[in-house]
Amino acid sequence: MSLRHQLIDVLAVIEGISRDHDRAVAWLQEPIATFGGKTALELVAEGRTEDLLGSWPRSNLAMSAESAAHDEHVTSVAR
């Protein structure tokens, strides 16, 4: 599968969790502690999409995406 298709798959999963395209795109660039601070984009580029979506529990993925969405909301409210 091409890098582009892998990114589309990851983005679709994150959009399903966050219910917001912009938040999902922002999350792709957020460091993930479980992966040593690497971003989802870096993991996909390294060929680790399966690690990101497969072996990493979906609950952690959801918590990370929801946390990024919460942080974005808090920042926008504070403005």
Results as ranks from 00 to 15, higher is better:
residue 46 E to V: 05
residue 78 A to T: 12
residue 46 E to R: 06
residue 70 H to L: 14
residue 18 S to F: 04
residue 50 E to C: 04
residue 38 K to Q: 14
residue 12 A to I: 00
residue 70 H to V: 10
residue 58 R to V: 10
residue 42 E to A: 15
residue 16 G to W: 09
residue 28 L to S: 08
residue 61 L to E: 03
residue 25 V to M: 06
residue 18 S to G: 10
residue 40 A to Y: 10
residue 41 L to E: 12
residue 19 R to F: 04
residue 69 A to T: 05
residue 66 E to M: 13
residue 20 D to E: 13
residue 10 V to E: 02
residue 53 L to R: 00
residue 15 E to Y: 01
residue 44 V to G: 00
residue 22 D to M: 08
residue 49 T to I: 03
residue 46 E to L: 09
residue 12 A to N: 05
residue 11 L to C: 08
residue 46 E to G: 10
residue 40 A to S: 14
residue 57 P to H: 13
residue 15 E to D: 06
residue 5 H to Q: 15
residue 65 A to E: 11
residue 30 E to L: 08
residue 50 E to M: 11
residue 57 P to S: 15
residue 2 S to G: 10
residue 44 V to P: 00
residue 28 L to M: 15
residue 56 W to K: 01
residue 35 F to V: 01
residue 56 W to I: 01
residue 25 V to G: 10
residue 66 E to A: 13
residue 33 A to D: 11
residue 40 A to M: 08
residue 76 S to C: 06
residue 67 S to A: 14
residue 25 V to R: 03
residue 40 A to W: 06
residue 67 S to Y: 13
residue 49 T to V: 04
residue 59 S to G: 09
residue 56 W to D: 03
residue 73 H to F: 12
residue 56 W to M: 13
residue 66 E to P: 01
residue 77 V to I: 12
residue 79 R to T: 10
residue 38 K to W: 08
residue 25 V to I: 09
residue 61 L to Q: 08
residue 39 T to R: 00
residue 69 A to H: 02
residue 38 K to V: 07
residue 76 S to H: 07
residue 34 T to E: 14
residue 19 R to E: 11
residue 25 V to D: 12
residue 14 I to W: 01
residue 12 A to W: 01
residue 60 N to A: 14
residue 49 T to L: 05
residue 71 D to H: 11
residue 77 V to T: 06
residue 61 L to S: 09
residue 69 A to C: 09
residue 66 E to I: 06
residue 75 T to K: 14
residue 6 Q to K: 07
